[in-house]
């Protein structure tokens, strides 16, 4: 499993995304956003950060990067693509995932742990979790409020495209849903299930030495998926 971690100017979660893949037994390397080739990658991660400073809408400029065309092709061929935080925002801006991420309901950046309920276990990024399982990883974002028209939301539910939902309460005095996302949506996938975008940061809690490795299985899922796919 070779995973390309894309670096946009302003990305800042690429080292830990790479490490998380490696810890799960995959191979990961950086690809600069101006490149046009993914270098033979089997999967792609668009990491978190503030591409182009998020001075326009988050992800709105990164979607024009030269590398995006190669990512589209890989995705169209069924290759796994994961967008984490800013990566999720870029995938929505690029039209690879439905919906949009708006300013948090509290109008403030929010950095805290969230509890996530697994709604789908047949994606390349969640197959190592159990259905309905709840796990805790951090979020850190200002624009994480998932939004879409009702018709799209109904379609997402009908097609089981919601992968993770905020579940809680995270603490007696902290709401489960940190940003006001509609229907508590934390992660969605495309119709085919190979492109997943999520606001939380599983890569930040993928090492037991930090106190928990609850996010590790996102990357373990990817490596497992590739083993199943090649069989």
């Amino acid at each position: 499993m070779r995973v390309a971690v894309i670096r946009f100017p302003g990305s800042n979660c690429e080292p830990e995304s790479k490490r998380a893949v490696e810890r799960a037994g995959g191979e990961a390397y950086f690809v600069w956003h101006r490149d046009t080739s993914l270098g033979g990658a089997d999967a792609v991660i668009l990491p978190g950060g503030f591409s182009y400073g998020d001075y326009l809408r988050s992800g709105a400029i990164a979607r024009f990067s030269p590398i995006m065309e190669a990512i589209r092709r890989l995705a169209a061929d069924g290759g796994p693509v994961l967008g984490l935080c800013n990566g999720f925002q870029i995938l929505c801006e690029a039209g690879l995932l439905p919906g949009a991420l708006r300013r948090n309901a509290g109008l403030k950046y929010v950095s805290r742990p969230v509890d996530l309920r697994v709604e789908r276990t047949d994606t390349p990024f969640t197959n190592a979790y159990a259905m309905g399982e709840v796990f805790r990883v951090p979020v850190g974002h200002g624009d994480g409020r998932y939004a879409a028209p009702d018709a799209v939301l109904d379609e997402l539910d009908a097609n089981r495209q919601v992968v993770l939902r905020y579940s809680g309460p995270a603490a007696p005095d902290a709401p489960a849903n940190p940003n006001g996302s509609v229907r508590d949506i934390a992660a969605v996938c495309n119709r085919e299930g190979n492109i997943v975008g999520m606001m939380p940061h599983p890569e930040r809690l993928a090492d037991a030495a930090l106190g928990s490795d609850a996010g590790h299985r996102v990357f373990e899922s990817l490596v497992r998926y590739s083993l199943l796919a090649t069989r």
Binding site: C13, P15, A20, Y109, G140, R204
Partner: peptide, 14 residues
């Protein structure tokens, strides 16, 4: 206050 500060980026926060 600190909920507005990213405290986990770089994934080395113990």
């Amino acid at each position: 206050v600190f909920e507005q500060y990213d405290s986990t980026v770089q994934a080395e926060t113990v």
